[in-house]
Design a binder for these strands. Structure first.
Lengths: 140, 140
DNA sequence: ACAAATTCGTTCGTATACAAACAAGTTAAG
DNA sequence: CTTAACTTGTTTGTATACGAACGAATTTGT
């Protein structure tokens, strides 16, 4: 086995990185009007699901580490899309919930979330999509 | 279709992001001793393939935009792993090549590149791996 | 009850990732 | 031949992403 056998374009890590670049580009184009990034949209959607959720738990649910989560909640909070409440039972916790403008923006945007998923999967047949999703979940 | 139907954990974009997080974690663990990031390793491998390559072309080959490429070549260059040459025919171009230490580090590391790929794909059967790679290339 | 371990959120530093605007050099169109 | 269009690389600004270290609060183990 020599170095010449290493083909970058066949390495799963490289392909995953490129696939995510395409997915992000599709998202960015579709969500330009909302001013939301993929992670911000994910955070809003999860807060909506949970009703109220602590910052670290939100990070676990959206696959962001605490340092990353801080930046995301800061920016969403500055835009008035989410609001914090101090937890009385556990004074370390910051509980987040959607504001009315946040809920309204999410309601207006979530349909485009489906459109993004559809566009990313467009090159695949319905059968291939199911297979791909299954395998992708397996390696996650 | 209501907002409640949007399940983050089923969206391709989210799954891709998590899959890449896992892939990066596996790479980082395996490459800790080399002090190389995935993109830096990709750049080294592609420079090795090309022998000599301009900065922008290297970016296209490794899927990095010019601004990102600059940072990567800067860091590799500071570590003495790659060296620049001014192109006489096109004075805008910076041509990059591996230094001897860069070639030596790559030679020592590339085997771990295969190991990373293998570990990422470990949850899949050989048949599933082939399918997954094929579909992943399709959506890229 | 109390020390140890854990959890929560913050901060700092480093590394992608990319939009946008730019200067300088090269190529294409007329 | 000359202007327009394009390419190359740089810079700035914003947004993940995460390791590491930290203080404060809570839970666990004994």
């Amino acid at each position: 086995m020599s170095a010449g056998d290493y083909r970058l374009d066949e390495q799963i890590g490289f392909l995953l990185r490129r696939a995510q670049q395409r997915a992000t580009a599709i998202f960015t184009a579709r969500f330009a009007g909302y001013g939301l990034t993929p992670t911000q949209f994910a955070a809003l959607a999860k807060i909506a699901d949970e009703g109220e959720v602590s910052q670290n738990r939100l990070g676990r649910l959206t696959a962001m580490d605490p340092a990353t989560m801080k930046g995301v909640t800061d920016r969403l909070s500055e835009r008035g899309l989410i609001a914090a409440r101090a937890d009385q039972e556990d004074r370390r916790r910051t509980q987040w919930r959607l504001t009315d403008p946040g809920a309204a923006l999410l309601a207006a945007a979530y349909g485009d979330g489906f459109a993004v998923t559809a566009e990313i999967l467009d090159p695949l047949s319905p059968r291939e999509r199911a297979t791909f999703l299954r395998l992708l979940e397996k390696i996650t």
